[in-house]
Amino acid sequence: MNNRRSTFLVSAMAFGFAFLYIPILSLIVFSFNESKLVTVWAGFSTKWYGALLQNEQILGAAWLSVRIAFMNATVAVCLGTLAGFVLARMGRFRGRLLLTGMTTAPLVMPEVITGLSLLLLFVALESMIGWPQGRGVTTITIAHITFSMAYVAVIIQSRLSSVDESVEEAAQDLGARPAKVFFIITLPIISPALVSGWLLAFTMSLDDLVIASFVSGPGSSTLPMVVFSKVRLGVSPEINALATIIVLLVASGIVAAGLVMNQAEKRRQRDVQMAVAANE
């Protein structure tokens, strides 16, 4: 019985992971295909990588996207941390329910709606106060900050709720003002969550097509917008090459981060065991 169940579970897991990874692997494999017909293998070649590096349009869009993602992640971490802190530590205040709503709704709001509503806001603001002038990098960044800060807020809030609040109270009790406590106690303790929040905000911005399409203006096409317009016309080996580069960058980053965290955790557990053993 038990055996049959574990066979079922293992095969479900194997199927699931195959489902998740075969598309990515096929992207990588066919990026080295000689033929322009992406799915028919015609020999190994790296020429599409060369073509990609020649493609000014893609490179320009990628650089723009990275700039926006960087700005977005930095601001979103600041605002999102504040929001998460307020929700986790400030207790009751007027309008708390609304703030909770505004930080969780963006997580599930369909992108077309967020994009459209922000565009209409920007247009209305421009006609009322003359800002923002036209649409472009600024409007895309603001739009991205709005939805990524919600993700950061959720991460920070859940991290803070697992941190013993009395640690912060102890710091106040020992004479540190609330602002100081926040900077020298709270922030260092939740620093891993800050890092993952930043990375999440960065990738989400780098990945967004729909919202950026609504709020971008002429001359500010982000990487996903360029990719989308190419992909709509059919498969293109250059895009495979681009995908491979992105996948490898992200994968190596995540694996490295995972290893570092794993090491730290192992060291920590060893320390704890030694402390317990020394006591006995």
């Binding site: 013993d164 009395s166 640690v167 109270e169 102890a170 710091a171 009790d173 106690i185």
Partner: peptide
């Protein structure tokens, strides 16, 4: 000054 039940030592 208070000594907390959980000790509330600064972990970092």
């Amino acid at each position: 000054n208070m000594m907390f039940q959980s000790y509330a030592l600064f972990p970092h």
